[in-house]
């Protein structure tokens, strides 16, 4: 077996292992009220930290993010705010 194939298999095992470990960890700590609260908030924290990192890494996405945030607050549903944010980004790309 080539070293390249070993790397690919190692990467697959690592990544899949992390995902299964996430389920295992959640299943284990789900019985504790504090941990349950943390788990419920973890999805939201993931979203917010992901956005913060995107803004830090590429400030040009700030405006599309802001448009989607405001539109989602005002409009019902998800897809129109998504399209408005995407449209803003495409507009900015073509203007620059």
């Amino acid at each position: 077996m080539s070293s390249e194939l070993i790397l690919v298999i190692g990467m697959a095992v690592t990544t899949t292992g992390l995902r299964y470990a996430g389920f295992g960890l959640a299943r284990f700590i789900d019985r504790y009220p504090r941990a349950k609260q943390a788990l419920s908030a973890s999805g939201f924290c993931l979203m917010v930290s992901y956005l913060a990192i995107q803004v830090e890494a590429a400030p040009q996405v700030s405006l599309p993010i802001a448009v989607s945030l405001v539109a989602s607050y005002v409009i019902r549903g998800i897809f129109l705010p998504l399209l408005l944010g995407w449209g803003t980004h495409v507009l900015l790309l073509n203007l620059s």
């Binding site: 190692g10 990467m11 690592t14 990544t15 992390l18 995902r19 299964y20 470990a21 996430g22 389920f23 960890l25 959640a26 299943r27 789900d30 349950k36 788990l39 419920s40 973890s42 999805g43 993931l46």
Partner: peptide
Amino acid sequence: TALLNAKHLLYAASLWP
């Protein structure tokens, strides 16, 4: 790979509830 995909741990954990 482990560092870049560390977030996958929390992806799965956050879906569990």
